[in-house]
Design a protein around this nucleic acid. Structure first.
Lengths: 221, 221
DNA sequence: TGCCCCTATATTGTCGACACTTTGTTGGAC
DNA sequence: GTCCAACAAAGTGTCGACAATATAGGGGCA
C-alpha cells in the first residue's frame, strides 16, 4: 500500500484524523450534529482543537457549518454523489493524463506489478478488488501525476468523501469483476505514454463506477 | 457582475476575507512570513481569529504552514502556475460541459447579453477584457454548472490563486484580443447544448491562457 | 385556543494566558 | 578557530473563561 505522508504531528492533527475517520467509517452518522462541547469531552481535548478539526472537515466537504448554529455531517444524497463523481472524473482524468507523461519507468513497472498481484487475487478468489486494492491503484496514478495541487485535492480532499459513500452504501469496493479490465487498459495507455487515451479511459472508468454506485444508492432510498 | 454570496457574518469571516484580499492583491508579498502575533495586532483581533484565517487560507492553497514553525504566503513559481492551470482546465472544462446541460435558457440569454456588452467595449476601446469582465464570464459558466462541489472548489478555492498570479504578473486580464472569440465560441456551444464541444473549447481556452501567462512569467524570472 | 413576545438555557464565537517547540546565541571545551 | 551544548527569546500550540447569538419553552394577550 502506498504510504500517504499524513503523519499527525500535533494534537490538533490527531483530533482531526480521528474525527475524520469516525465520520468516514460511519461511527458518526451522516446528517448528525457535531456538538463542540460534546466532542471535546468525548475526545478529551479542548474545544479549540475540535473547532479546528471541524473547520478542516468543512474544507474537504465532509461537514457543513452554519454560523452561530453549528456543524452537521453532510447528508449523502443522489445529487451529492453525482457531483462528487463528476469532480472526480475531471480531476482523475487529468491525473491519468499527467501520469502518462510524468511517471517514471520504474513507477510504471511497479504499477504493472500491482496489477499482476491483483490478477492473482482475481483468479483465486474469483472477485476483484477489495477497497484497499482499488484505492491503491487510484492513489498510485494520482501520485504519478506529480502535481501537488491534484494530489492534495484528491487525496486530502474528495477521496475521503468517496470512501464515506462506499461505506454507507455497504460496498467493499467498486464493481467486482469488470473493474479489473478497465484498470488494465488504463495501465496499458500509461505504459504507452498515451496521455489522451489514459485520460479518456480513466474518465470512462469513473463514469461506469458512478453508474454502478448510483444504482445501489437508488435502492437505499 | 454576478454576486457571490460570500457575506461575512462573523468576525472570523471578516478577518479571513481581509487577509485573503491583502494576499491576493499583493499587499502581503508572496513568500513572506505570516506571524500570528504580528497580524493579530495589525488587524486588531485576537490570535485565534488569525489562526483560523490562516487555516482557511491553507485550505485554498494560498499559504503553506509548517507545524511549530509558522505559515508563509505561497511562492509563485512556474511549476505552481502550470499545476494550477491544469486543475483549472479539468474543473472548468467539466463546468462548461455541465453548464451546457444545466443552464436555463434565460441564463444563456443573459450570457449572450454579457458577451454583447463586452463586444461594445472591444469596438470602442480596441481591447478586450479587463480583469472583472473575464471573471464575470467564467463565474457565470461555473455557476451555470449548478454543481455545488465545482462551484465551491473553483470560486472559493483556486480562483483566488489565479487572481494572485495575475496581480503579481501585472496583467489586467487575459490576452486582450483573442480571448473574445474564444468566449464567443464557448457560448455558442452552450447555446447549442453541445456538452462535448463546450468542454473542449473551455479546455483549449484555458490552455491558451496558460501558455500566454507562462510566457509572461518566464520574463519575470 | 392560537399567536406573539419574552425569558432561560444551551451552544457557538472570541479572547487572553500558559505550555511547549523551534531557533539563534553565547559560552566553553577541544 | 571550530564544534558542540546549554540557554534565552520568540513564536506556535493548547487551554479554559467570558461574551454573543440562536433555540425552545412558557406566559400573556387578543
Amino acid at each position: 500500500m502506498v504510504f500517504l505522508s499524513e503523519q499527525p504531528v500535533t494534537a490538533a492533527d490527531k483530533t482531526f484524523f480521528q474525527l475524520r475517520k469516525d465520520i468516514v467509517e460511519g461511527e458518526i452518522q451522516p446528517g448528525s450534529k457535531l456538538s463542540e462541547t460534546e466532542l471535546s469531552t468525548k475526545y478529551a481535548v479542548s474545544r479549540s482543537l475540535i473547532r479546528e478539526a471541524i473547520n478542516r472537515l468543512e474544507a474537504c466537504h465532509l461537514v457543513e457549518r452554519k454560523a452561530n448554529v453549528g456543524a452537521r455531517v453532510v447528508a449523502l444524497t443522489q445529487e451529492g454523489l453525482t457531483e462528487l463523481y463528476q469532480v472526480r472524473e475531471a480531476l482523475e482524468g487529468m491525473a491519468a493524463r499527467l501520469a502518462a507523461k510524468n511517471m517514471t519507468d520504474q513507477e510504471i513497472a511497479d504499477l504493472n506489478g500491482l496489477l499482476s498481484s491483483h490478477f492473482q487475487e482475481v483468479k483465486s478468489a474469483g472477485s476483484y478488488y477489495q477497497e484497499a486494492g482499488d484505492l491503491d491503484f487510484h492513489y498510485r496514478i494520482i501520485l504519478g501525476s506529480k502535481s501537488n495541487h491534484l494530489i492534495s485535492m484528491l487525496i486530502n480532499g474528495i477521496y475521503h468523501l468517496v470512501r464515506m459513500y462506499r461505506v454507507q452504501l455497504g460496498m467493499a469496493g467498486p464493481r467486482v469483476t469488470t473493474a479489473f479490465d478497465e484498470h488494465k487498459h488504463i495501465v496499458q495507455a500509461i505504459s504507452n505514454r498515451d496521455e489522451e487515451l489514459a485520460e479518456m479511459l480513466m474518465r470512462r472508468h469513473i463514469s461506469y463506477s458512478r453508474n454502478n454506485i448510483e444504482a445501489k444508492l437508488a435502492n437505499n432510498f
